[in-house]
Design a protein around this nucleic acid. Structure first.
Lengths: 229, 229
DNA sequence: CCGCATTTGTTCGTATGTATC
DNA sequence: GGATACATACGAACAAATGCG
């Protein structure tokens, strides 16, 4: 069986090199990459070739170009941007179902694999939520909430799960952030977080999955209630 | 609050138009799109601009260019290509966990929403599997198997779930297709499929989720066993 | 096998719009 | 406002691969 040569064109070579520079953190998220002129010399390609490579990564959501200013790194997760764009076109309720599926699995895995660092991060999030609720700091509350859930997913130690979950939870919150008020349901949410934390601490998979289900049920009801207005 | 103008550059305009032509099926998968010269006139842009747009879609996996021949449509699902590329680099066991999460949720939703068409398709898959097993037709068996699981996910009526699941199940099978032999576990799989089908038919969410868990457990054990060789 | 047209790959040059100092 | 740096866009040309007669 002869392998076909499958030639790699210049543009793809440049694109994957840039991609790797981003994923490896050599070009950190939020910072500018060198201007086209320098990159042309660095990769030893023409302007159009370089631009095609950059454009491909812009479309993929890894880069963002600003005329007159430069090109900045927007994300280091190739999956994130595509997923976000896709999810934005999807129905919110569909997204919630998928989020439930992923987070439930994550919670079970987290209950198995969690280490001390995970637990202390979760505790810090709960503490931060509580403070935010007392001070009426809505933004901090949301931020802590997101961090809490993302920590659970990260504790699953499943990178694919982590990368899929990240855009999902952010989209969900971007839908509801301007709508939800800080009222009773959030108090309930606080209790749920605490119980969920203890389940993970005790490595109780069944309870962890169950609490995630409860949480998503409450979230779904809140969203439905708000949507009626 | 002033909204930033968020100007849409030519390349992005052209890219999203082409994307839509692909997604709408106007340019079917597998067929060639018009050559650059015609597209330049059609979109009224220069060659470089058009090429940057095409290159973005090539990188995203929607198109494939061949020097001297032309450009063909490779996929109509923007999520599929990116996910496949990503999953291929992931660990198989991580992918299995995510697949479990998605299919479990899908089975529960399918139990709720399934219609008569879904049920008859599932029955046909089971029948096809049985025939394939009797005739020792391994390829047909695998194909029926994939179709069975995809039908369940499609019966969930959740498009996001469907699009996420598709690349996942295909990658899993591409990992194992050359490894697994048609032996005892497949018999067990057949029984599981039948029980799963009945659970969905009876709209028994709990049982459906439970059988998916069993199925994935068996699949995982088989994979682990094969890997040891 | 050869020659030729078609089509994509790559490079260079030039002009313009935009942001930053 | 002016100068500079940078991305945007167009046009022309040649190279390389493919396909056809």
């Amino acid at each position: 069986m002869i392998q076909k040569t499958n030639r790699m064109y210049l543009v793809e070579q440049v694109a994957s090199q840039i991609e790797q520079l981003i994923e490896s953190g050599h070009w950190p998220v939020g910072e500018k990459i060198p201007p086209e002129m320098k990159l042309m010399k660095q990769f030893d390609v023409s302007r159009n070739t370089l631009r095609e490579a950059i454009r491909a990564l812009v479309h993929a959501g890894l880069l963002e170009t600003k005329q007159g200013s430069g090109t900045i790194v927007r994300s280091s997760n190739p999956l994130g941007a595509t997923l976000k764009r896709y999810i934005k076109r999807s129905a919110l309720l569909e997204t919630l179902d998928v989020r439930l599926a992923l987070e439930k699995q994550a919670a079970q895995l987290a209950a198995e694999h969690r280490n001390e660092t995970d637990l202390s991060t979760l505790e810090a999030c709960i503490q931060s939520s509580r403070e935010a609720a007392e001070n009426g700091n809505y933004e901090q509350f949301i931020a802590s909430d997101i961090r809490f859930h993302q920590t659970i997913v990260q504790a699953s130690s499943n990178q694919l799960l982590i990368d899929l979950y990240e855009p999902m939870v952010k989209i969900v919150y971007s839908f509801v952030q301007d709508l939800m008020a800080m009222d009773a349901p959030f108090k309930y949410e606080e209790e749920l977080h605490l119980e969920l934390f203890m389940a993970i601490q005790n490595q109780d998979k069944v309870a962890a999955a169950s609490y995630i289900e409860d949480y998503m049920k409450v979230l779904r009801e809140n969203i439905m209630r708000i949507k009626e207005d």
